[in-house]
Design a protein around this nucleic acid. Structure first.
Lengths: 192, 192, 192, 192
DNA sequence: CATGAATGAGGGTTCATTCAT
DNA sequence: AATGAATGAACCCTCATTCAT
């Protein structure tokens, strides 16, 4: 008697996740090209061939991981989706962003290593660019409302700062005083 | 008449440079793993085998390139080496940093893509950490002198911001308003 | 009420046929090595695993298909089985042969692609050789009776011609004037 | 001191031929898909990787072999290239064709196995089609000149017969009375 | 009878490195 | 100093077959 479709679906989803977890860990530490399918399979406790039952290529695997991480990011951002940022929401955004970086350090390590790669990932990046542009637009509008002199420059600086902090935190996990910087950035770029 | 040892050394050095130039170009565009020794050799106009007369491995080649780029960076920084930063020197530092990024975009592309890689490059990074820590110390001292409330947080923010801006400029060369941001950062983090 | 053994056998036979039909289609279009068990199973509307309930291997499957096609061929040939060929029967044979090629083009495509393969299929070919030798013997006897000068050479030429025509028709389906050639061959090799 | 370019060229050509010889043997016996690069390399006495120094892919290898064989074929055909076939030239053509088949049996085995394959080889076949069409045109003109009733049908029959004979000779090397058939075909299709 | 997850060997291909010349 | 032929390990991926359910 075969398993029910529900059973198969459950197996598939669990195994896919299991593979993605193993792959994320390895991609983040060794880089995309530095990680082989063999390593991922071994780390996930499955055979090499089985990988391709769940992901049709190495590229689909990494894409799938990236999408999942980006989904987490967007879920936490602009929660009421009214397209306007208040000062409280700004602070909430900063704190949530750092929370995400803190809790999904490995994912963001992968993210930063991936964005340095070549055309293969330009499609992926195109998708994310929309999301990130949206964030930028909200920020510019916010700074305008608060009467900041050059809202665009301020928004770009703020965005770059978030990137830079994330990058340094990721590279220097133990030493980086993320909490302190979190407060400072809200004070300096919040413009309450 | 045979060449003197000095002449040999000079020829050697020139050839090494020629190889490094070709390799940097390719590494930055195709990534480290995406660039083969064959391609580098062809681009440098020499044979594959000869590569190994000048660099003992692909890894030594990339390490050597990184070192050279970092040397350029340090040469331009803190020119009088008196260990103290004035407000003018701060501005000078920012402007020179951006100048370097603007003029050596390819190198910094390689730099950012390399720092996301694995333990092989941890040695390289250890070396650079000293240089970067030195910069950080000067900055903290500078902010203390200027009476900034939390000098360390300010210095870290400034450093992260420089990284974030460089990263975004590299990724988005055409659209990024580097000049504008350059002025804004001096105004906001100069504390004259 | 449980099914009788006969019912089971019939269901089994139908399913086998269903698989063979799907497989023939794919083998002929993609080649033997170019067709995977997965594709066959999907095309037959069953699971991969079930395939092995009906055929013990990919090889048995293709062998079985070949046998079936050859059976069709022999059924149409020498209908009264008296071991003698009249002029009318010769013509009948030619017309029926071409009819078979026309109606089972796909099978003959598979046939010609398979006979070029390696020793695995030598067994299969041994079986067919008997059938084809039988045909040859009848033809030689026929040409002798008609007073042809070199009956063996004539028979071999005729057999080779039939092969060559089939091959070219298969490869060049649309352009090949099979009808015209059919008449011509009867005129030229019939020896009425 | 490096080898001279001439030396390298000689090495390359010899090795390429060595690989092609090994590959032809294997392709003919095991089929294209049934032959692995590993097997070819082993049979040629080189490493797998070296294959790709001489042929950029398995496909280029087989294409190169096919071209070489077809070149032999065309060299022997229509030697004075005046575009007209005399009765002597017709006989010469038949005899030379069989000579080629006799002497390059393996190649023609590959040829027949290849023409049954899928789209990958359609390009290759397109090239050959021109050559073969040319032959056909000459034949039709020849039969017209000789006053044959249906020249096209005759030419197609002759061409198909040549194919069929080659095929059967290849498959049944030892038993096939090629000499006898050679004479018979000239008598029957020569129309002197 | 029926499923598709799972395996493992092998497919073609690439590439850093070595070596004879 | 210089060449490119040669190696061998590893790469991503496919697939006939087996197996737990």
């Amino acid at each position: 008697m075969p398993r029910t479709p529900e059973q198969f679906k459950k197996i598939r989803e669990e195994k896919r996740q299991q593979i993605k977890d193993a792959a994320l860990e390895l991609f983040a530490h060794e880089g995309y090209h530095g990680t082989s399918i063999s390593e991922i399979a071994k780390s996930a406790g499955i055979s090499k061939g089985l990988m391709y039952n769940y992901f049709e290529s190495k590229e689909e695997l990494v894409t799938s991981i990236m999408d999942e991480g980006m989904k987490i990011f967007t879920e936490f951002f602009d929660p009421d989706k009214d397209g306007v940022l208040t000062a409280d929401e700004f602070e909430f955004f900063v704190r949530k962003s750092f929370e995400t970086v803190r809790e999904n350090t490995i994912y963001w390590k992968l993210y930063f290593s991936i964005i340095m790669q070549k055309e293969v990932f330009e499609l992926v990046m195109a998708k994310y660019k929309n999301i990130l542009d949206e964030v930028m637009n909200l920020l510019v509008a916010y700074y305008e409302k608060q009467g900041v002199e050059d809202p665009l420059a301020e928004a770009i600086m703020f965005g770059s700062l978030m990137d830079g902090i994330s990058l340094n935190y990721i590279l220097n996990n133990d030493m980086f005083p993320l909490d302190k910087v979190e407060d400072a950035i809200i004070k300096k770029f919040g413009h309450r």
